[in-house]
Design a binder for these strands. Structure first.
Length: 466
RNA sequence: GCUCCGGUAGUGUAGCCCGGCCAAUCAUGCCGGCCUUUCGAGCCGGCGACUCGGGUUCGAAUCCCGACCGGAGCACCA
């Protein structure tokens, strides 16, 4: 089998489906998976992508047995093109695409179709020397009166004068030609790809027939619609150049490296893609499903911390001296604990709570600072509230169905920035966050899971999901 | 317009080829409960679908026809 991306950028969720599914078939039934990089359109080649694609596949756990780069195989395509011309199955056409389209729709042959083999062979060589880009293509003689206009004498070789980063060339095979030649020569027995290739499969069938080759088995799966992310590699590239995205792993992108940066595990992505399968109907991919799979994987490893987004100050009168060890993970005492502390001065201490919690408070509200104690709101201002210490007992809070709210001491805390797909949220985190390391996946209680991306003055975390 | 494909709960999926064991599977989601010092995890319960209309048949999610809806392709991109 094969996975055949364009080297126009790193892999995204759409590629992951093709890669994972092909990999899964190979692992299940035995065989070989070839990574074939299809770089026959010099205009769309992004040089770093050759390496990025392989990195992404390794991350995904896709086992590649062989790597083939099409630009290294141009001579092979030329050779088979000549064979086709010699057999009278192809001709060099000088029509412009508009002219040919008109003829094609009218089921009319163009004047170049009736040239002799000799003339065609000569003209083909001229594509390497004389013709300019757009002046000539090599067409396959499939018939101009075929039912499907798309099938009629489609082109298989063209000229591009855009320099190619890997090779010096000007004549390139078109996708349907190089794919058919390679699939056969590389011994591909099963092709698993998106249904946007169904028409291509029928085109490639002509080439197989002309050479008398046996067709591989084809499986086409439907489109994957993913809410809210840009998947088109060319659009992402534009966005990066225009400054809308910081890089290929910008939190708002659907690239695999963006997901990895946010703390997604490749196993979760594999599972989601395997679950989606190879149905030919289109599907709306739901993030919630992927979140659930990922949560299952990271929940056991993510230590808990308090992070307060958009902090608002609450001043507590009569606050007790308070210090307490709390588990880093409720189910894993062996992982140790973190210390929550509050040191009042003259009976007054101040904490930050999240703006979203603050909004729900009223004067007289009774609430509990998680892992701490119960307080009562005395006075609520716009940006600050006054509260009074009430009691220590958790039971009291439960009995009164008080909200349990996470908090951070106002005097001692760490600046935290959480980068989410749609915005960056700033806030403060508890002092023990000083101990987290880059790449740790943590859970900010009552907020969500995130991966630590940067530690220094403060902490920068990339948000994964709730 | 032309060529081709597909339609099972909010989402994904099993079942369809080989009709009965399907008043339809599993997961996720949502709602509720228990537990828990998270809106997390776990446990328990609930919600929720065969697009519609004909036909064949003793019997249809499954076979046939039509309608409707959705999608893909019709490039000198892959």
């Amino acid at each position: 089998m094969r996975f055949a991306p364009n080297p126009s950028g790193p892999l995204h969720l759409g590629h992951a489906r093709a890669a994972v599914l092909n990999d899964a078939y190979v692992k299940r039934y035995g065989g070989k998976l070839i990574l074939r990089i299809e770089d026959t359109d010099p205009a769309r080649v992004f040089p770093p992508a050759y390496e990025m694609i392989q990195e992404d596949l390794r991350w995904l756990g896709v086992e590649v047995h062989e790597v083939v780069v099409q630009s290294s195989r141009l001579e092979i395509y030329y050779e088979y093109a000549r064979k086709l011309i010699e057999a009278g199955h192809a001709y060099v056409c000088e029509c412009t695409s508009e002219e040919f389209q008109k003829l094609k729709l009218a089921k009319k042959e163009c004047e170049h179709r009736s040239k002799s083999v000799k003339e065609n062979l000569e003209d083909f060589e001229r594509m390497f020397t004389e013709y300019k880009e757009g002046e000539a293509v090599l067409r396959l003689k499939t018939g101009v009166d075929l039912r499907d206009p798309a099938m009629r004498d489609f082109p298989i070789m063209r000229i591009s004068e855009t320099p190619h980063p890997r090779v010096k060339a000007r004549v390139y095979p078109l996708m349907n030609f190089s794919v058919a030649i390679d699939d056969h020569l590389l011994g591909i027995t099963h092709v698993l790809r998106g249904k946007d290739h169904i028409v291509n499969t029928r085109k490639q069938e002509f080439i197989y027939r002309f050479f008398g080759w046996r067709m591989p088995e084809f499986i086409h799966y439907g489109r994957l619609k993913i809410e809210g992310v840009a998947l088109s590699t060319s659009k992402i590239k534009e966005g990066i150049e225009a400054g809308r995205y910081a890089s290929w792993d910008d939190a708002s992108l659907g690239t695999l490296r963006a997901l990895a940066r946010r703390g997604f595990r490749s196993e979760a992505i594999r599972k989601a893609m395997l679950e989606v399968g190879v149905k030919q109907s289109d599907i709306s991919f739901s993030w919630k499903n992927l979140f659930a799979y990922n949560r299952e994987l990271i929940e056991p490893i993510a230590n808990r911390y308090f992070f307060v987004a958009s902090p608002v100050e609450v001043v507590i009168e009569g606050a007790p001296e308070f210090s307490r060890e709390v588990r880093l993970h409720p189910d894993h005492p062996e992982r140790g604990s973190r210390k929550l502390e509050l040191t009042p001065e003259q009976g007054i201490a101040s904490v930050f709570i999240a703006h979203s919690d603050y909004e729900k408070l009223r004067e007289g509200s009774f609430m509990r600072l998680m892992e701490g104690f119960n307080i009562e709101i005395v006075e609520k201002g716009k940006e600050k509230a006054k509260a009074r210490f009430h009691s220590f007992e958790l039971d009291e809070a439960k009995r009164r169905k008080a909200p349990l709210i996470h908090w951070v001491p106002a005097q001692e805390n760490i600046a935290v920035k959480v980068v989410k797909p749609d915005r960056i949220e700033s806030g403060v985190g508890e002092p023990s966050l000083a101990k987290v390391k880059r790449d740790d996946v943590v859970q900010f209680e009552r907020y969500g899971f995130a991966r630590v991306d940067e530690v220094g003055e403060g902490v920068v975390a990339y948000y994964a999901h709730p």
